[in-house]
Design a protein around this nucleic acid. Structure first.
Lengths: 264, 264
DNA sequence: AGATATTTGTTCGTATGTATT
DNA sequence: TAATACATACGAACAAATATC
């Protein structure tokens, strides 16, 4: 048998094809196809013969652009020096989160949209953490909330504390035993951090929120340490409901502000 | 306060930074930052002065690599000729879904992982459809289930029907009024379609499943037409629980198969 | 229809940086 | 430290595409 795998793996080519494929794109697609078909694993070296300028009928420059594409996609990494070359790299969730965030920056969802998912998923994440989170990660979590343990003294500090609060959730997402759940929660956090509306809210002073926020998280850490998933889930559910209500209130305030005052 | 916007938008740099940023990557990040800060909309032309080799202190080749990265991220497109240049491109959800799918093909989640999210999100999608789905989309939905209304006559036909069933859910996702919810559900469907394990399950004959599947969907369409979100949510919840149980059973069967028989 | 100008796309030669030996 | 092997970066020149006259 000459071809053990006759199936063509074409699901990776961009589905909504542009008018014309250009050479670097085609080269990148070709290489990716080979990569996946050959079943190369992260850490494996990319065969040098694939990269010979002659093998692909493209020049070094074009080849380099193709490699750049794959590198950005997270599929490969290059190492200099002898024994160096192109290596298959494990994709990181952040690569994919980045692209998805880009998408939603162009068509921003509402805060209600984001929390519709957070209300469903964060409690699951908390329960997951209570059953699976390793002890080392628990330590990291405790350190994270230490950043905003003390009352902020300036507006900027308050803003940084708010971001650290997102990091707390991000740490949970990073350690999720369910990778898809972790990915989605991380994406939602990224949106909260980057969407202009949310940034505007975070940058304004928010007296009062901090107290309830940190209380929830202390309780949550305790529940996780006790390995009590039901309790963890309940706490997170309550936290999400409060957080959504808070964000919506602030959003309304911000809208009223921009309508009445400060025309500019 | 001399600087009106002192905030640096650095969250876009890969959070888990590699050892060394290289020039094309840095250039790409810089350009993306400018793009977002300037609030350029899809269709807008990228100012030529940003691309002057002098402005960025990089050569044209390096600049082109940076542009290639952004192009692959879906952020820009280029046009040749007079009046041509670099244009901001409207990103499509499929761009981002593709990248995320790439990620999960490298570290496949389990079926349980996927359904942990589907159980939470698909019911919300159904409820959303019952309140927001336009009547035209309802017609499309009815046409979709017509594909698998009749009993399949061959294995291949059964497989195609299974994919059409995924299309039913995809249609719901496409029409979601909540874009993040729609995106996530579409990603999950993509995973079900592309993950090797799932493909293996779908390609085997599954007597009995079809009947309950189509019943659920007929009921669901009725609930949506009646604009009854609670009912729609309930139906979908039941559907998801059954679907998960089914997939898990088939997965177990497949594992046993590959353990006992057919060593090859 | 055809010539021309403008802008992106491709290639080559060479230089530089960096890690191994 | 010097030699090396390899990736990375630069700049100039050429090719292709396309709108305008």
């Amino acid at each position: 048998m000459s071809k053990p795998t006759p199936e063509r793996r074409q699901s990776f080519a961009t589905p909504l094809a542009e008018k014309k494929r250009k050479r670097p794109d085609m080269t990148a697609d070709l290489l990716r196809e080979r990569l996946l078909d050959a079943g190369l694993k992260p850490g494996d070296r990319m065969p040098a013969e694939w990269l010979a300028p002659d093998a692909l009928k493209v020049s070094r420059g074009t080849l380099r652009e193709a490699l750049k594409i794959l590198e950005f996609q997270g599929l490969i990494a290059s190492k200099t020096g002898p024994g160096g070359g192109i290596f298959v790299r494990a994709m990181t969730p952040s690569d994919a989160i980045q692209t998805a965030t880009n998408l939603f920056l162009q068509r921003p969802p509402t805060i209600t949209d984001i929390y519709a998912l957070r209300k469903q998923l964060e409690p699951e994440l908390a329960a997951d953490a209570a059953t699976h989170l390793p002890d080392e990660a628990l330590v990291t979590l405790k350190e994270t909330i230490r950043i905003y343990e003390k009352r902020p003294e300036s507006g900027e500090e308050e803003y940084l504390q708010r971001l650290a609060e997102l990091d707390f959730h991000a740490e949970l997402a990073r350690n999720a035993s369910n990778p898809v759940l972790g990915f989605t929660c991380a994406l939602l956090l990224n949106l909260l951090r980057d969407l202009p509306q949310c940034r505007a809210i975070y940058q304004k002073p928010n007296p009062g929120l901090r107290e309830t926020g940190i209380l929830y998280q202390i309780e949550l850490i305790r529940a996780i340490a006790e390995r009590d998933p039901l309790k963890a889930r309940d706490i997170m559910t309550g936290h999400m409901i409060e957080a959504e209500r808070y964000m919506q209130t602030r959003e309304r305030l911000l809208l009223e502000d921009s309508e009445t005052g400060a025309g500019g």
